[in-house]
C-alpha cells in the first residue's frame, strides 16, 4: 500500500471539500473494497477522507411508503433492522448475504453503491426497487445511476448521503454466490408494487440492469412460470473463470424464477 494523507471528515461538506481540493482524493466509508484495492496498489489516492466520523450519514427510517437508509449504514445493521425486515424483508436478507459477518460489521450501503462493483448485491435492489439516490448536490433515479463497470452517474467529489426505497407489496432476492468470495455470480431482485413489477439483475453484466421482458410478463402473471421461458442474451455479459456469459444468461432466468417464488411465497 502506498501511503496517503488521512483525514476524518467532520461533515459532508468538509468531506467533499477535502476530496475535491486534494490532487487525488478518495472517500472511505467502510473500506471493505477500498482497503483491499489500496493493498494491491490498484489505487494511489493522495488523500483518504474517512466518512465514519460524519454525523447523520447512518440510520434507517420509514416515512410513509418510503424506507430511507443512510449511506453509512452498515450491512449488519440493515440485515438486523426491524424496520427493514418489516418494510422490505428481501432487502434485509440481501444485506445478510454480503461477504461474511465481520465484513458486514464494516461495509456500508453507500460504499457498495458508489463503487458499483458488477458483482455487488445492493445494486440489484437499488435497480429492482427503483430507489432514489440522494447526494450532497442532487437526487438521482436508479435507472439513470448505473453507467458501466465501476462507473456511475456520480461526479468527482459527489457524495451519496442516503437512499430512498419505495416499499413494494412484495419482493424477493436470490443470488448464485461465488463459493469463495460470496459475490454474486448472478443475483436477481424482483419487486411488485400494484400492477408494476421491476426486475434488477447484478453480477451478470458490467453493472446492474433491468429485464423489461420479464417485468412485463410478471406484471401479467406474478409467478415463476411467467419468466421460465424468458432468456436474456449473453451478448455483453460478463465472462470469466467463474462463469461464461452463456451460463450467466442462463442463471438470470433461474435466479429470477427463484426470486419470484420467494416474493410470491
Amino acid at each position: 500500500m502506498y501511503d496517503f494523507n488521512y483525514r476524518k471528515a467532520t461533515s459532508a461538506d468538509d468531506a467533499v471539500k477535502t476530496v475535491t481540493s486534494a490532487s487525488e482524493g478518495k472517500f472511505m466509508s467502510g473500506g471493505m473494497t477500498l482497503i483491499p484495492t489500496l493493498k494491491q496498489r490498484l489505487a494511489k489516492p493522495s488523500d483518504v477522507v474517512d466518512l465514519a466520523t460524519v454525523p447523520g450519514l447512518a440510520g434507517i427510517s420509514v416515512s410513509g411508503k418510503m424506507l430511507v437508509i443512510g449511506a453509512m449504514t452498515r450491512h449488519a445493521v440493515v440485515n438486523g433492522s426491524a424496520d427493514v425486515k418489516k418494510a422490505i424483508p428481501a432487502l434485509a436478507k440481501l444485506a445478510g448475504l454480503i461477504g461474511d459477518p465481520q465484513v458486514r460489521n464494516r461495509g456500508t450501503i453507500g460504499g457498495s453503491v458508489a463503487n458499483s462493483d458488477p458483482a455487488a448485491d445492493y445494486p440489484a435492489a437499488v435497480i429492482g426497487l427503483g430507489a432514489t439516490i440522494h447526494t450532497n448536490k442532487r437526487t438521482i433515479a436508479a435507472d439513470s445511476y448505473f453507467k458501466g463497470i465501476f462507473e456511475t452517474a456520480l461526479e468527482a467529489g459527489e457524495l451519496i448521503t442516503k437512499f430512498e426505497f419505495p416499499i413494494p407489496d412484495r419482493a424477493g432476492y436470490m443470488k448464485f454466490p461465488n463459493p469463495a468470495s460470496r459475490y454474486a455470480v448472478v443475483g436477481v431482485f424482483v419487486a411488485k408494487t400494484g400492477g408494476t413489477v421491476r426486475v434488477g439483475v447484478t453480477g451478470a453484466g458490467p453493472c446492474a440492469f433491468r429485464v423489461p421482458e420479464m417485468e412485463k410478463a410478471l406484471a401479467a402473471n406474478f409467478a415463476p412460470a411467467a419468466v421460465e421461458a424468458i432468456k436474456v442474451s449473453p451478448n455483453g455479459l460478463n465472462s470469466d473463470i467463474h462463469a461464461s456469459a452463456e451460463y450467466r444468461a442462463h442463471l438470470v432466468t433461474v435466479m429470477a424464477k427463484r426470486a419470484v417464488a420467494e416474493a410470491a411465497g
Binding site: 488521512y6 473500506g31 482497503i35 483491499p36 493493498k39 449488519a76 461474511d100 459477518p101 465481520q102 469463495a180
Partner: peptide
C-alpha cells in the same frame, strides 16, 4: 491471507468482530 477472507485476524472493535487486516489503525 491479508485479503479479508480467512478471518485469522478477527478482533473486536467496540464490541463487534472485524477483520483487523482490513481497517487502518488511524480509523
Amino acid at each position: 491471507c491479508d485479503t479479508t477472507q480467512c478471518g485469522a485476524c478477527v478482533v473486536h472493535i467496540d464490541g463487534l468482530p472485524v477483520k483487523s487486516c482490513t481497517t487502518l489503525a488511524v480509523q
